[in-house]
């Protein structure tokens, strides 16, 4: 606690790390790229989650939970999305360890999965595969579902809260009868994010679509909220996508 916080003007990155540490928000863990969210940091997350969750419910959404593991074939079907995330996927190849005298625990070569599983970097594929069974006609629409979850992206350069291999987030996935309705939903959720950022986080944001080069892989377009940090760099603080028709 008594440790001095580096000033913003002398070293902004160190200042940020000192704040995260000094305030007891999070720390690096024994697992490379993964952080421990400490009680004060987690309490803050719970507050954010509660406020946002209520805004989702007020706009007609419900929560559900989908598997953390995605069969590799699901990802392969969505070529654009696979390309976007392939470089940072954690892959599960085995499901068992065994004790070998003199070697301790080793991966059991007999327990190789027939099809590898991907730890979700995002859940579009698994959720839309599930929706296929839920949607038989327009009468089953709209589907307005949100998931609070952890996702994994194998980042090489990590920074507490800003970029870690595993992180907490929410992802809403909605299905609509018409393009017009789907686009209105994307705009509505962008507005929910803007309201949360500005009225709860006291953080002003710009809103608008991303360029082709910056959009979410597989989206027709991506809408975003962008904030400015005190070093005048931008931070993407939320995105809402129009994915077009699902096949």
């Amino acid at each position: 606690m008594a440790e001095k916080i580096t000033s913003r003007s002398s070293d902004y990155s160190q200042w940020y790390l000192d704040i995260v540490k000094g305030a007891g928000l999070a720390e690096n863990s024994d697992v490379r790229g993964c952080m421990v969210i400490k009680p004060h940091g987690y309490a803050l997350w719970e507050r954010m989650q509660r406020a946002l969750d209520r805004m989702f419910k007020d706009t007609g959404h419900v929560n559900a939970y989908f598997p953390i593991f995605i069969p590799k074939s699901f990802l392969a079907r969505e070529e654009q999305m696979a390309e976007g995330f392939a470089k940072e996927c954690a892959v599960i190849t085995h499901y068992r360890l065994k004790a070998v005298p003199g070697q301790g625990l080793v991966v059991d070569p007999e327990a190789k999965l027939e099809e590898e599983l991907i730890v979700r970097p995002t859940s579009e594929t698994i959720i839309w595969n599930t929706y296929r069974n839920w949607i038989h006609s327009y009468r089953d629409l709209p589907l307005l579902i949100n998931q609070w979850a952890n996702v994994v992206r194998w980042e090489m350069r990590t920074r507490l809260f800003l970029r870690t291999a595993e992180f907490l987030w929410q992802e809403g996935h909605t299905a609509h009868a018409t393009q017009e309705e789907a686009e209105a939903e994307a705009r509505q959720m962008l507005e929910v994010y803007r309201t949360f950022a500005e009225d709860w986080m006291a953080m002003p944001v710009l809103t608008g679509p991303k360029s082709e080069g910056q959009k979410f892989p597989g989206a027709v377009y991506t809408l975003c909220i962008e904030a400015m940090m005190q070093d005048r760099k931008a931070l993407q603080a939320g995105t809402s996508h129009f994915l077009a028709e699902s096949s």
Partner: peptide
């Protein structure tokens, strides 16, 4: 990173776990 200062964290009151 939007509000904090050289003394530490500054949390927006609506989200602060301790008000």
């Amino acid at each position: 990173m939007t509000h904090s200062d050289d003394q530490g964290l500054v949390l927006p009151p609506r989200l602060a776990p301790i008000s």
